[in-house]
Simulated scan of single mutants.
Amino acid sequence: MAHVVLIATGGTIASSSGPDRAAVARRTAGEILGSIGPCDVEVQGRDLLNVGSYLLGHRELRVIAEAVAEEVARDDVTGVVVTHGTDTMEETAFLVDLLHDSDKPVVLTGAQKAADHPDSDGPQNLREAIVVAASPEARGCGALICFAGRIFAPRRTRKHHTIAPEPFRTGDGGPIGRVGASSVRLTARPVRTARLDRPDHRFDETRVDVVTLHPGADAVLARAAVHAGARAVVLAGTGAGNGNHAVLEWVSEAVRTGKVVGLSTRVAEGPVVPMYGNGGGADLTRAGALNLGGLPLYHARLLLALLLSQGVSVTQQTLTPYI
């Protein structure tokens, strides 16, 4: 029989309402597992955190990644499921995937409706995630997100809807497979990149900020981020990754003083394409901003934080395999 470890970190799947009707993560791994009924897979629960994912910082993401690595290293474990809030599941899944060096599946799932909701989606999502984690079909795929019967690779997957039962979408693509009550069907396999080293405590305090551009934006927020200790700033440019003259001046200044500037886009899908001058993306990249390609904005922020925390010299060449 396949043996899956469930690492519980909180989120809506573990939440129930208090007297004020506000949902708070409070249910344990055992309680979550108790909601799914009989299972053909041996599942062992592990309580790691019990918070909404909107409360997570770099330290907590590192702790989750370390726990995954510990369980995957066990000879008796077939795969791992991580229950997690949907707010920042995309970041944790992407980080785990960057670090995962085993063929064993790691599957993140959660819920959009709290555990005490009469129509909670948590139990079905968890049952399906366990099926994926136990399946030979999912071996070698790295970390995955399993939600509402769909299986996603993390690299370009984001939460695209706040409350819909199918909240995840992969930019410029779609799910790589589907899962039913007892079967997994993959229609594509993710392209895996070279594994990165697991972070240490330096990652916890590595600050990388995002500054979104808009009509009338200047460089005040970017300068404030650097003043507050940001090792890097990711610009969420307009369109295909554009700025303006004030931002261009700041990029030149920041790069000259050794700061890392990443150029992303505030647009939901599509890559950065530096094709405009007069303060546009072509000028920003010529000034030293690093093109973050089609990597989603907050994935890119996390990647920069991971590399910088490990003393990696972040260049366009360094980033290319991951974007």
Rank of each mutant, 00 (worst) to 15 (best):
V4K: 00
T9I: 10
G10C: 11
I13R: 08
A14L: 03
S15K: 03
R21A: 07
V24H: 12
A29K: 00
G37I: 01
D40A: 15
G45M: 00
R46I: 06
G57N: 14
R59A: 13
E60N: 00
E66V: 00
E66T: 02
A69H: 11
A69T: 07
V72E: 06
V72G: 05
V77W: 01
G79A: 07
H84S: 08
G85L: 09
T86Y: 05
T86E: 05
T88C: 01
D97Y: 01
D101L: 01
D103A: 14
P105I: 03
V107L: 12
L108R: 03
K113S: 10
A115L: 09
D116Y: 10
H117Y: 14
D119I: 10
D121F: 07
N125Q: 06
R127H: 11
V131P: 02
V131T: 15
S135F: 12
E137L: 11
G140H: 05
C141G: 03
F147M: 15
F147D: 05
A148G: 12
G149N: 04
F152C: 00
R156L: 06
R156T: 12
T157M: 06
T157F: 09
H160L: 13
I163M: 03
D172N: 15
G174W: 02
G177N: 04
G180Q: 10
S182G: 14
S183M: 05
R185F: 12
L196M: 11
D197V: 09
P199T: 07
E205Y: 08
E205P: 00
T206L: 00
V211Q: 13
L213F: 10
H214S: 06
H214A: 09
H214L: 08
R223A: 15
A228W: 03
V234W: 02
A236G: 15
N244Q: 06
H245S: 12
V251A: 02
T257K: 10
L263K: 10
E269Y: 12
E269S: 14
V273A: 09
G280T: 04
G281M: 02
A282V: 01
A282D: 08
R286S: 13
A287F: 11
L290M: 12
G293E: 08
G294N: 15
G294S: 15
L295N: 03
L297Q: 13
L302T: 13
L303K: 06
V312E: 14
V314Q: 08
Q317I: 01
